[in-house]
Design a protein around this nucleic acid. Structure first.
Lengths: 232, 232
DNA sequence: CGCTTTTTTGAGAACATTCAAGGCATGTGG
DNA sequence: CCACATGCCTTGAATGTTCTCAAAAAAGCG
């Protein structure tokens, strides 16, 4: 379960103070939000749209470390420089916090810090899941896991049943997130479709046809394993 | 730069209170420290030795998400169950904190929470680097990166120049950390050796012969790229 | 010293990548 | 309104890096 904002821990007075330092920002598709190596002067909260966060190697290879949607937080870091770049995928609305001022506010409101620690811990857990995916899962398992994750997060953000999953990002980005090429992503989707786990409304919309099968194909982690009722 | 303990933020009175809830624990090689799925009742600080943290898939595939050494912290989580297992590699000394009691102490000492947030942010940055490694680097680059990381962390813990790097873990564990098989790990080490970047004192001790070459072979991230003096 | 465990090396197989081409949308200009 | 360009996605064939299987060499340990 994802937190829907860092602000949700605060009361109205505290929110008013937070509001004083925040700017509302818009970004068009493909617009950069932050650059790897730039001074990390701001933190962000995604209010609407989809954002990709990525790291680059010197020769241009790219690893997307995360996709952010409504409610997701961006900017946790110790370094005074961004260690990643962030770019808008769709039209995006953001809350922007000046780092310095937010730090001062944190001094006053320990609840804010607690919230950030929760957020960081959540992201850490997600990062560890992603390491498992990147290090040990097959292409098909990666793709199945990805669709299930997007579905879960859509459910968390509220609304629908999560069986119709939007893929706002191009195949290229999915590949760079899952450690695959664009072609392998495409082929994996095709295989999941032929196996009857999903169907495609269009190239950017997946329907989950058989969630249990998809879970199976995602390569269950130990803790995800459904507990089987003991038969005596 | 890694923090050498969560306690380093506290004064002597606070440390005394921390000391009241802590137990000193020993673990022999291969001894389990925590199990994926068990109630997360404790957090740990490694005082001596080497620990591996890993996640399992239902079919037994394993991803080691981190190695912990002196000063490293274990147990950051939101879940009330461990989402990973931890096992001693060498003989290990640990400080063990009951989760409930530590949480109460955190209420009193915001500095502790700040420290944990720093730790979490550091781990998050490391996790993102590891995603880049697992998703986009070649076997040789992964191995070179791994040796350099171990060297850096040894330097941080103090002492030597970092040119002689101990590998307390077996090849098997290195493979499960780097997303490779044991054979590929071995072959990668051999290649790095033949290229003149490293030499082997014995199978568990690597010497860095040419650090610049090793950096080169590690596949530099954008931010790691040495700034070249402009020639006019 | 003989046993086990770990590490290295070799040969063949496999999964994902690379290279290449074709399909399918969307948008622009004639 | 159609022709054509462009970008994105899918599919095919060949290649390659890493994996699997196998065995030998080296190291640790009683």
């Amino acid at each position: 379960m994802r937190d829907l904002s860092v602000c949700s821990a605060l009361d109205s007075t505290e929110l008013a103070n937070l509001d004083k330092i925040v700017s509302r920002i818009q970004a068009a598709p493909r617009q950069m939000i932050s650059y790897q190596g730039d001074p990390a002067d701001y933190l962000f909260n995604v209010t609407e749209g989809a954002v990709k966060v990525y790291k680059l190697l010197a020769d241009g290879r790219r690893q997307i470390t995360g996709f952010l949607f409504r409610g997701d937080f961006l900017g946790l870091a110790v370094s005074d420089q961004y260690t990643y770049s962030a770019e808008a995928i769709t039209s995006v609305s953001l809350c922007r916090f000046p780092r310095r001022k937010l730090e001062k506010l944190i001094e006053q409101y320990p609840k804010l810090e607690k919230r950030l620690l929760q957020t960081a811990s959540n992201e850490l857990a997600a990062a560890q899941d992603q390491m498992l995916l990147l290090g040990r899962k097959t292409a098909e398992e990666r793709m199945a896991t990805f669709i299930l994750n997007l579905s879960d997060r859509a459910i968390c953000r509220g609304g629908d049943s999560g069986d119709v999953v939007a893929l706002p990002m191009p195949r290229n980005d999915i590949g760079d997130y899952l450690g695959l090429t664009i072609e392998t992503v495409s082929r994996s989707i095709t295989r999941l479709r032929k196996l009857g786990a999903i169907s495609l409304e269009n190239s950017r919309t997946v329907s989950i046809v058989d969630r249990d099968l998809l879970l199976e194909l995602a390569g269950l982690a130990l803790e995800d394993r459904p507990t089987v009722a003991m038969s005596l």
